[in-house]
Amino acid sequence: MAFLIRSLFRALSGLPLSVLHAFGWVVGWLSFGLSSRYRQRLFAHAAQAGYPRRVALATVAESGKLVTELPRLWLGRPVPVEWAGAEHIDAALAQGTGVLFLTPHLGCFEITAQAYAKRYGATHPMTVLFRPARKPWLRDLVAGARQRPGLFAAPTTLAGVKQLIKALKAGQAVGLLPDQVPPQGQGVWAPFFGRDAYTMTLSARLAQAGRVQILLSWGERLPWGRGYRVHVRPFEILNAGPLSTDADEAARQINRAMEALVRECPAQYLWSYDRYKQPHRSAPPSP
């Protein structure tokens, strides 16, 4: 099985991005049609944020593309990338501080780290946090694909967190998805689009690991397989100030920042992600 999957990934990695995104359209709508749970979560989360069903339906194909573009991003030749806001990265790196990139489940979050590594990794490497796959054969494929010049991967373990802190203290870059639900005991409850969501505190802890600047980024998937546009925003602009040292307030600030990015392109947000799930023994606060 492992050999077949790797062979399939290698074969798909040579296809044009437009073809892979066409496959993704099919995969997305098949998933939508076959899973009532998927449909319910998709519509409920989009409605919670105030978006009509037409916006939720627009994300169906985008979710499929998120899967089928991976062979090309992991194993294929480079894809076209545009930048919107790279000057904010230039300014942050010029100050010699660590740079913390926060990226929601919006658009193609794989491309944000890859594009950074290609442009800046030779002098300022990036370390990204990722959750290792449960299947050993898939774990090796994912880890190998994400390790590349100027880009390192840190697992969601204590050792991985230490790796992130070390990178920031060395004046390097770190990237993570702060809207990913953390394990019990590693987060606080904070509003996300008007509903309490268990939110990681790791983002705030990393921001306090010495001299660190926070940048927000996301990778817009351009139509017809034309590539991607990486957007970069200073955290202070969207939050009207620096990140709080209080864990609860910091979580609220980060969630507000993620909401602001999602509003830039709600049709590419992963509304089907179980953002409001309740970790074991971690009940939301009473209303």
Results as ranks from 00 to 15, higher is better:
Glu87Ala: 13
Ile254Asp: 01
Ala22Glu: 03
Ser286Thr: 14
Lys65Tyr: 02
Ala260Asn: 07
Glu62Asp: 07
Ala49Val: 13
Asn255Gln: 04
Ala47Tyr: 03
Gly85Leu: 05
Arg233Thr: 06
Arg37Asn: 09
Arg195Asp: 00
Ala173Asp: 05
Val181Glu: 03
His231Arg: 12
His45Trp: 07
Gly187Phe: 04
Thr199Ala: 02
His124Asn: 12
Val55Cys: 10
Gly96Leu: 05
Gly210Trp: 01
Phe43Ile: 14
Gly33Ser: 14
Gly194Glu: 05
Ile89Arg: 13
Trp218Lys: 08
Met1Pro: 10
Arg263Ile: 06
Trp218Gln: 03
Gly98Leu: 03
Pro132Ile: 10
Phe23Arg: 13
Pro234Val: 02
Ala204Tyr: 04
Arg39Ile: 13
Thr59Asn: 15
Leu30Glu: 05
Trp29Pro: 06
Ser36Met: 14
Leu158Val: 15
Phe9Cys: 12
Arg226Val: 01
Ala251Gln: 03
Leu106Cys: 05
Leu206Trp: 02
Thr68Tyr: 01
His21Trp: 05
Lys162Asn: 07
Phe152Pro: 00
Leu176Phe: 05
Lys166Ser: 12
Gly219Val: 07
Leu100Asn: 09
His124Glu: 03
Ser13Val: 11
Ala197Pro: 08
Tyr51Arg: 11
Thr127Gln: 03
Ala154Arg: 12
Gly24His: 08
Thr245Pro: 01
Pro104Phe: 12
Gln172Arg: 15
Gln278Met: 07
Val142Trp: 00
Trp25Tyr: 13
Gln208Phe: 01
Ala92Asn: 02
Gly241Leu: 04
